[in-house]
Design a binder for these strands. Structure first.
Lengths: 136, 136
DNA sequence: GTAGCTGCAAACTCTTTGCAACTCT
DNA sequence: AGAGTTGCAAAGAGTTTGCAGCTAC
């Protein structure tokens, strides 16, 4: 049983066929798929799955903090199975998403919130960039 | 003539009645209104304005970089007339938006992008927090 | 005069929901 | 057995668009 399945069971969710399929897709996705893409991947395994179930499942998982919903500058949401904390750099030319993590940044964010009189609960940081030409 | 009107004219846009009204609303708004809110404010001045025009105008202004479109964690967009560069801290209890600006953060972002092999074109940073209790 | 702009309503995209049937525990 | 889950289709929210008439230049 996968990590995700285990956590869902612990949360008291029934492990139905469609649910398992979607969890498997998420567990095997190293990228940041949209609902539509999760749906496509799930259908490849079990073609009877409906997109309504994908929406419902992703919403549940988001509430359980088992996935993270991203809204990059697009008209739809993308999801990612929760792993270690990190941020994203989106390649403006290819749409590719690069993950990164930076300790100084983490500290700075907390400090900024504190100075404004707030406890930092959550945050978003996305960089949008263009690949640097390397020397010829 | 306002700053926004001037810049629109320079871009070759006609200064029609509805346009002027919307620009005035944006210029006078110190907050981050949604399309719906811009529409309400504009209607208070000229009740014949249609929401389609508000959408069209905000899209144009966004492309001209005269306003910034924000998608905080909500199902709709909010806009803000462009001023100096800054970021936002959103109060999770009240929805209040606090603006801030931090030099160390600016430098750090550029450095991070560079280290990943990218030229930083744009970025988003939002902090979500809860107001700290002050000492009694 | 005419290119650009407008209001209106219809269309579109993404997401949610009511419901009857089904399924895990 | 029964609560939770599903697929379907319809509805909802937010946004865009085609069109005929209007307006700034």
């Amino acid at each position: 049983m996968t990590e995700l399945e285990l956590r869902c069971q612990q949360a008291g969710l029934k492990m139905t066929g469609p649910r398992k399929t979607i969890l498997r897709v998420l567990g095997e996705s190293a990228d940041h798929p949209s609902v539509e893409v999760v749906y496509e991947r799930a259908k490849a395994i079990d073609s009877s799955i409906s997109i309504a179930t994908v929406y419902r499942t992703l919403n549940m998982l988001d509430e359980l903090d088992l996935v993270t919903r991203h809204e990059f500058n697009e008209t739809f949401s993308r999801y990612e199975a929760n792993q270690e904390h990190h941020h994203h750099l989106i390649d403006l030319e290819t749409g590719k998403v690069v993950e990164f993590q930076n300790e100084a940044l983490e500290k700075l964010k907390i400090k900024i919130a504190e100075e404004l009189g707030y406890e930092l609960i959550d945050h978003r940081l996305e960089l949008y960039g263009r690949k640097l030409k390397t020397k010829k």
